[in-house]
Amino acid sequence: MAKARGAIVVDVEGCKGCDLCVGACPTHVIELSRKVNSKGYHFAYMEHPDACIGCAHCAMVCPDSVITVYRWKPAPKPREATTA
């Protein structure tokens, strides 16, 4: 069945590796990279991109506003349209 799919884009240089987004993601998409940015922070990235549903929970709790969220929604079938 078609489901909503999401993706996040993290501004790697702005991320401070605080881990809050990792804890907030309901589908365990995000992890902190073993690599670091120029400030030495282990930045967040999508370790399991297929699991992202685009709910933006991660972005809600990101103190540095470095997460941008996208969500692709399947086109509703005609009879589903009214309940969307």
Binding site: R5, G6, A7, V9, G54, A56, A59, I67, T68, V69, Y70, R71, W72
Partner: peptide
């Protein structure tokens, strides 16, 4: 997925 029309936040 990462397209302007899908931007939610």
């Amino acid at each position: 997925i990462i397209r302007p029309e899908n931007l939610v936040f």
